[in-house]
């Protein structure tokens, strides 16, 4: 369980997050939704320690994370898997080396054991047999999936995904959503997902946190989201012609 308590973050005069308190539950896919520029990525970067909050604290299973010693933070980071908005694969390494990287750094496994784990993870994201490809030879969807494989290779307890399916075709997008949900439930991971994709919201929104004007505006799940009478939430979710019709049905 990840607890985010009273997080405030400003950039200069601009308040991006204003006293946000939210809990992400274990074994569930926890969604953060909101408009582009609402601060989803900033919140995730605070959770992973890439930004320091101006105020507030994040803790992982009751272990404080923000504002603590770097050494403690490193211990928690070793239990994290992070999928960046752009993938952030190491372009000096091929697919296999990318996925193996966390194992090389933090385990004492033999090469054979590591290779087995890499193949298992690649298989899990439906990408068996591409071990030796360079990252430049991958399509956008493959890159995302390799990045997921890398994020899960060292069996993380916490998984952060920043817009895992943006820019992908609807089928691949759904595949990735399903994959993340399966992994989350199978290994009992605390998963946090940033998205503004209504399909993901409905499909994998086990908890949904809507951020609006820097505040946690609404909280619920994919059942209650359809019936919510929060005006800003409805404006956000049902903004297109197609989704308006879904709402009517």
């Amino acid at each position: 369980m990840i607890k985010v308590e009273n997080i405030t973050k400003k950039f200069g005069e601009k308040v991006v997050l204003d006293d946000v308190t939210v809990t992400f539950e274990r074994g569930k896919t926890n969604l953060i939704i909101g408009q582009s520029g609402s601060g989803k990525t900033v919140l995730m970067k605070i959770c992973t320690g890439l930004f320091d909050p101006d105020n507030g604290n994040v803790s992982f299973d009751n272990r404080p994370f923000s504002n603590t010693k770097e050494k403690r933070r490193i211990d928690i980071r070793k239990e994290m898997g992070v999928l960046f908005q752009g993938g952030a694969l190491f372009d000096s390494m091929n697919v296999e080396e990318n996925v193996m990287f966390p194992l090389n750094m933090f385990t004492d496994m033999s090469y054979e054991e590591k290779l087995e784990r890499v193949n298992f993870c690649l298989n899990r994201v439906n990408l068996s047999g591409i071990n030796k490809l360079a990252t430049s030879e991958l399509s956008g969807g493959m890159m995302k999936r390799v990045a997921i494989a890398r994020a899960i290779s060292n069996s993380p307890k916490y998984l952060f995904c920043d817009e895992p399916n943006s820019g992908l075709d609807p089928m691949t997008a759904e595949l990735i959503d399903d994959l993340i949900k399966e992994i989350t439930e199978e290994y009992n991971i605390t998963t946090v997902i940033n998205t503004h994709d209504i399909n993901s919201v409905i499909k994998i929104g086990q908890t949904i946190n809507f951020i609006y004007k820097g505040k946690l505006w609404w909280r619920g799940d994919n059942k209650s989201v359809m019936k919510a009478d929060n005006r800003e939430l409805n404006d956000f979710l049902f903004s297109t012609e197609l989704t308006k019709r879904i709402k009517l049905v």
Binding site: T48, G49, R77, K78, M80, G86, A88, F101, F160
Partner: peptide
């Protein structure tokens, strides 16, 4: 610089690498 702007350095950091 390229590693920085493509977030590869951030990726290293969140893995717990210095």
């Amino acid at each position: 610089g390229t590693m920085r702007v493509t977030q590869q350095i951030d990726a290293l950091k969140v893995m717990g690498v210095n």
